[in-house]
Amino acid sequence: MNEYNFAYLDEQTKRMIRRAILKGLAVPGYQVPFASREMPMPYGWGTGGVQVSAATLTPDDTFKVIDQGADDTTNAISIRKFFEKTAGVQVTEKTSDATVIQTRHRIPETELSEDQILVYQVPIPEPLRFLEPSEVETRKMHALEEYGLMHVKLYEDISRHGAIATSYAYPVKVEGRYVMDPSPIPKFDNPKMEMAAIQLFGAGREQRIYALPPFTKVVSLDFDDYPFEASKADHSCEICGASHTYLDEVIVDDDGNRIFVCSDTDYCATHASKPQEAAE
């Protein structure tokens, strides 16, 4: 596919995105505005992640894409094919073999290492958006570190439901400064965000990039008497037997019977062959 530059975007655009990424890494959790481009997939389908990946990939990289933890969901396939075609990079489904992993809604179960980059697709980068619809206002709130509204919301959850009623896209505080949206990952994944790999977040439609350097302190918001809890279904994986992974609930027959299986397909496939290890 020679009609397009390596990884689709032209070099000036990639440089502009890299600048935003570097700024994001320098100010962890801060949303850096960037001149997001139209991509050949729709906004809302991972254009932010795709642009970040395009600016990050080199010809030597090995690329993995997951959606809902799985490599074989349709949109993951579509994005993987896009980079196979436009960048000609190696692709893989194995988490440990990948150097760049683009994800939607999950963090892989396999621990990531310092020579890996995790790229998140972000729909709404602003953690305060549903409390305050105006971007002008929310940027002010971040600048002034004015996060009272968020705590009031969490408090109201507790007074109404007896628990914090946020189960995914659970807000975090980064290095004691910026409140950040971790993208719609289940809160089960939140504790994994203090990791060795670089984490980059791309929101195409909203024109924002933000980042977490390795081992950045990431704290899920909570209260002393209502501590954060990373929850999952109280079952084990039907296929590999893992008891410590995030599980999908699958309805298996007309009577509505269900089983639970790992949402991370690579992890599940790897450990199905070695069930003892997974059950540990």
Binding site: Q68, H105, S167, Y168, P184, S231, Y246, D248, E249
Partner: peptide, 26 residues
């Protein structure tokens, strides 16, 4: 607008799963 609107056709079962668990608990 159309991209964001139509993206809700994409799978959201991980998020929905966590909502299921939360609503059952509540």
């Amino acid at each position: 607008a159309t991209g964001f609107l139509e993206h809700i056709k994409l799978p959201h079962y991980v998020d929905f799963q966590s909502e299921l668990e939360l609503i059952r608990k509540l």
